[in-house]
């Protein structure tokens, strides 16, 4: 399988990365080089094989459903490019 210019633009949009028109051809060839490389996986017989979900045999631990952390909103927003009253500020999203 390979991607064309329209698909590259669509992927960039899904990934929320702006790419300019003159960048499209470069990405198209790089992504196709990667897709060409992974093509060889189609040689492998994977019938009846379970996809890996955990690399080591482990059961996810459970704990009481209680608050164990928090109470410091000023630390949460400390690195925000823009914040006010301990809220993250973003461009208007609802008219």
């Amino acid at each position: 399988m390979s991607v064309d210019a329209a698909t590259v633009k669509k992927i960039a949009r899904l990934a929320r990365i702006r790419i300019t028109d003159d960048e499209v051809a470069g990405y198209e060839s790089e992504l196709n080089a990667m897709l060409g490389f992974v093509e060889q996986l189609n040689e492998v017989d994977v019938d009846g094989v379970e996809p890996m979900t955990s690399v080591t045999p482990m059961v996810l631990r459970r704990r009481e459903d209680v608050v164990t952390d928090g109470g410091y909103p000023e630390k949460i927003v400390a690195n925000a490019p823009l914040s006010e009253d301990n809220f993250f500020m973003v461009p208007k999203v609802v008219e």
């Binding site: 992927i11 990934a15 992504l31 990667m34 992974v38 492998v44 994977v46 094989v49 379970e50 996809p51």
Partner: peptide
């Protein structure tokens, strides 16, 4: 971008699930 593509609708099984099966092997 390649990660977005292999996880996108219609390609997930062909790429991602297959790769995770190969990983099991």
């Amino acid at each position: 971008m390649i990660g977005t593509y292999v996880l996108s609708a219609g390609y997930y099984d062909a790429y991602y699930v297959r790769a995770q099966k190969v990983r099991t092997l």
